[in-house]
Amino acid sequence: MLTPMQTIMRIQTSRLSTLAFSILFLSCSVNATDAVSPAFDCQKAQSQVEVLICQDNQLAKLDMQINATYQKVINQISSKEIANVKAFQRGWIKGRDDCWKAAKIKQCVQSSYETRLTELQIAAGEFEVPEPIQYECGLEANDTLTKVTAYFYNDTAIPAAMLTVSPTSDYINATNLALLTRTASGAKYQGQNFSFWTHQSEATLSQYAQADLNCKSH
């Protein structure tokens, strides 16, 4: 026969065991509930990057966002444009999967997702088109006036500027997307072969292999 003290000890041990099991069960349930699946089938994941996405909720959510916004774009364009958009998307996926070569793989994948999501959000018209700001650039540098119309998007995955530039050059198109990067002062938008650095009513347009152009809004 157990003494009163032994009975109390056994009850306490039983309660602790039950509590520990309950905590473990709840933890497993929460993890299972919180798990996020990407838009692709993780059972068929092949690349190192795809496996990482399936294991990381943040990346999986970004994949779902990309897929939903991509479908919006597809539904809004003509059949002639769809082939080009799909080819570009396949190229982007290949570039994303090349992040396995990066020193920080997740950071590379996340940056790839956020950049592409920003492009798609603007293409899909998910945000109201901002009021344009007109700039005149470079008249004092080469007697050729470069006109820039800037649309600044602040609510996209990465804040961005859509710039229309006239005249164009060998390194800049008529319409260009630039993404906000961190700077000590002002706002620097980085695009392919160019950057656009704004500060109050002034800006600097920098292009590959060309002199910087000073710009003023009007």
Rank of each mutant, 00 (worst) to 15 (best):
G91W: 06
A83L: 08
L120Q: 05
L120S: 05
I93Q: 09
K101F: 01
L117H: 10
W100Q: 05
A83S: 11
W92V: 01
K104D: 15
K106R: 13
N84A: 13
R90V: 11
A83E: 05
K94W: 00
S79L: 15
K94A: 10
F88S: 13
A103D: 14
A103S: 13
L117D: 11
S111I: 02
A83W: 00
V85C: 01
G91Q: 12
E119N: 10
C99H: 12
E119G: 02
T115G: 14
G91H: 11
A83I: 07
K104A: 14
I93M: 12
V85Y: 11
K80M: 09
T115W: 03
A87F: 09
C108S: 13
R96E: 09
W92M: 05
N84E: 07
A83P: 00
W100M: 04
V109H: 04
W92H: 02
R116Q: 15
Y113E: 09
T115Q: 14
K80F: 10
Y113M: 10
E81M: 09
D98I: 01
I93L: 14
G95D: 09
F88A: 14
V109F: 03
L120K: 03
C108W: 07
L117W: 13
K106M: 08
A103K: 14
A103W: 03
K101M: 03
D97S: 03
N84Q: 09
K101T: 03
Y113R: 07
K106E: 15
G91I: 07
T118W: 10
A103Y: 06
S112M: 13
I82K: 15
R96I: 12
K86A: 04
S79D: 15
E119H: 04
E119L: 06
L120R: 02
K94Q: 08
K86Y: 01
Q89T: 09
V85W: 09
